[in-house]
Write a protein that binds this DNA or RNA. Sequence first.
DNA 1: GATAAGATACCAACCGGTTGGTATTAACAA
DNA 2: TTGTTAATACCAACCGGTTGGTATCTTATC
Lengths: 216, 216
Amino acid sequence: MPRPTKHAPERGDARTRLLEAARDVVRTKGFAATTVDDLCKTAGVTKGAFFHHFKSKDALGVAVAEFWTETTSALFETAPYHTPTDPLDRVLAYIGFRRAMITDDITEFTCLVGTLAQEVHATAPEIRDAAGVSIFSHAETLEADIAAAVDERGIAPTVWNPASLARHFQATVQGAFILAKAGNNPDLARETLDHLDRYVRHLFGVQESNISGDLQ
Amino acid sequence: MPRPTKHAPERGDARTRLLEAARDVVRTKGFAATTVDDLCKTAGVTKGAFFHHFKSKDALGVAVAEFWTETTSALFETAPYHTPTDPLDRVLAYIGFRRAMITDDITEFTCLVGTLAQEVHATAPEIRDAAGVSIFSHAETLEADIAAAVDERGIAPTVWNPASLARHFQATVQGAFILAKAGNNPDLARETLDHLDRYVRHLFGVQESNISGDLQ
DNA sequence: GATAAGATACCAACCGGTTGGTATTAACAA
DNA sequence: TTGTTAATACCAACCGGTTGGTATCTTATC
């Protein structure tokens, strides 16, 4: 076990602490309104540490988007929605999982990279692209289950395809977050996920059901 | 006819010019990254004029959200999607209208108040609420057509209702914008509106169709 | 002792906002 | 018609605090 120093925040974790601070503060205030001093104060480090690990504020923006990609992909990989043997059940369980993640605290369940993409799409292409990778690589993890469900159910989608539907999932989730923020009410996010659930059941020709009982 | 002064920007329109500047610049850079000087330069007025018309930058934020509400409601009121006599056709034509508004320039077709709501939801409640009014009052204009379509088609929605579906429309549109920004590609927005079209046709039990031909 | 990690002190530019003033217009009285 | 008053609209210069970023130094680790 590494011998801790006398200082409360241990040496070597300043970068991670700054990324966690950025994740939380940016989701609350947005990227532009978040100052470097904000992040240093939240992380409990000084400016010298910040610019030692990130060459600029924009570089931190890219890094925190990549950090988000790593942490969320780990979260979704180990999430229980993968357990059903029926691929369509996994797809529906994904929606249930996203729905179950919605809590009372809006900043807690909303998406960092969605916020980033919207804010910097025209001014910081590197941050925007890092956010784009996060969203679209996550969408790709859904494609396999959707494609398997298409195969297993023997349906033949014409105008849509698994990749398109996976992206539509992400759009719906992002839109759900915006309505929750605009109305300051998480129920608005749940409501739109219920419509998504209904749409998917239609595409695969299964009965509607009250989804609030079988989350995950 | 009022005699124009010697100055190029005529007297009395500074407020409108500032609101138009805010609409354009905020959609590009976001609210926090937009400086008062930015707006003054774009509008061709001085800071004195700015603070004569708006008591603070936040007050401008509220005013530009209200300005957006006024201009967009005027746009949608006179839009051609109201012409079909069948209410469901009007609902589908609304989606087609939204789809037809998507151009190559992302900042041009995306939604100011969606951007505002996401950025300031936790830090500027007054701006957030003004953005919320804009989104939800627009959703309400859809409710009548959706309800009329429900009546006319004799369907009996149980878990969803016209108000909920109208909000889902807005969530889907907002989500479409975020994906277009994240992927820097307007096609991503069109794609998700096609899924919405398909969902609505399902809810009302009508055949799918290639919607790209009958926009508006 | 070399290198990475972090602290301290500092800076020039920029930010939202204020100040004190001027130009224009409308209302009204003489 | 002219003069007065008041209110609105706008301008140029300025202010103090904040911003992202840097230079320099100290400390820990291999």
